[in-house]
Amino acid sequence: MRHDKAALVLDLARRMAASAEGVTLGEIERDLNVGRRTAERLRDAVISLFPQTEEVSDPPNKRWRIRGGLSAFEQAPTTAELIELAKAAQALKASGESGRAAALEGLERKLKSAMRSTTLNRLAPDLEALVRAETIAVQAGPRPSADEAVLAEIRQAVLAGRPLGFIYSRPGAEARSRSVAPCGVMFGRANYLVAADRESGRIQTFRLDRMSAVRSEEGTASPPPDFDLQGFASQSFGIYQDEIEDVVLKVAPEGADEARAWRWHPTQSVEDQSDGGVMVRFRASGMRELAWHLFTWGERVEIVAPERLKSVMADELAAAGRALDRARHPG
């Protein structure tokens, strides 16, 4: 076990208290990485220590939950948990996400205000030292935008199952009024609304910083019943969604170790080659973003498939060459 039994019991109690529907033995096995007999022993230990634990029938399973929460003593966060929360807020602020950073900073203040003063005084020196010793390296790239008012309207529409209306502006195109069924938001190098067209049902993405006059509209508009936001996000190499392709990349021996440790895509497979290199395979859309990423690998990566990725890479190289030529020969 990665923790001693007491820590696992307390961890499970927190999970039971944090879940409105309760947890099953299968979920205990999965989340705590233990076997069935250990999961049963941990459940029994929680029931013994917390008599308020309830058993809930959910055929074909049984669930266990703790209503009313746990005491401040049992819920006191650790130094590592508090520093990770502070770093997450710092990362959001550094990337321009001041609204989301403020939400995490507010949560941090609430946690600290609920802690006993003796516990907080004990943790404070370590927290201060780690805050000074750790920072976020800000990488070049677009500054994502997640205006609090825009996010609030999107969330309201999602929760109420109502249409979302807005004006969408794209470079080089006339601004258009849109009304969609919101499915969710993807946060990343840029932040996107994922929504279904109300007529065709086609799933589309809209950059939040290009949306204005965002409002929840009257009526009902829900995502397709089989839509899964995480599954949708996993289809693409980045954010842009287009045709899904079988991607095959041959990585030279000098880049093999890095390629094995790299997370290319959720569907990836990495095969060792006789020359010491590796072959990377996955299915994804977003060939342009993949081409941009492959620039960073230089000569260490050869595109085997698909042909469209080769074409996109050639187009991007040609565009970069033209820009460089203009810089060398201005006017």
Rank of each mutant, 00 (worst) to 15 (best):
L127I: 13
G68D: 05
Q230R: 14
A20G: 10
V312A: 04
V280G: 04
R260H: 07
D246G: 14
Q273A: 12
L82D: 06
Q139Y: 15
K93C: 05
Q156D: 12
S222T: 14
L104F: 08
S145E: 09
P77V: 01
K62A: 12
L70T: 11
A196Y: 01
V23E: 08
E21I: 12
A252L: 01
A323V: 10
S71G: 13
A13Y: 02
E128G: 07
A319Q: 11
A233I: 03
A157H: 00
V304T: 04
R63C: 07
A157R: 00
A103L: 14
L127C: 04
R100W: 06
R155P: 00
V251Y: 03
S274V: 10
G231A: 12
E40G: 09
T53Q: 00
F237A: 01
A327G: 14
R263K: 11
E21H: 10
E84P: 00
A261Q: 12
D315I: 10
L164S: 03
G255V: 03
L70M: 05
L208M: 06
R36D: 11
Q273K: 10
L12K: 02
Q241V: 09
K112Q: 13
Q268D: 03
R2Q: 14
A233G: 10
A91T: 03
G106N: 08
A7C: 00
V280R: 02
Q90T: 14
R162M: 09
V304H: 04
Y192M: 08
V214G: 02
P125H: 09
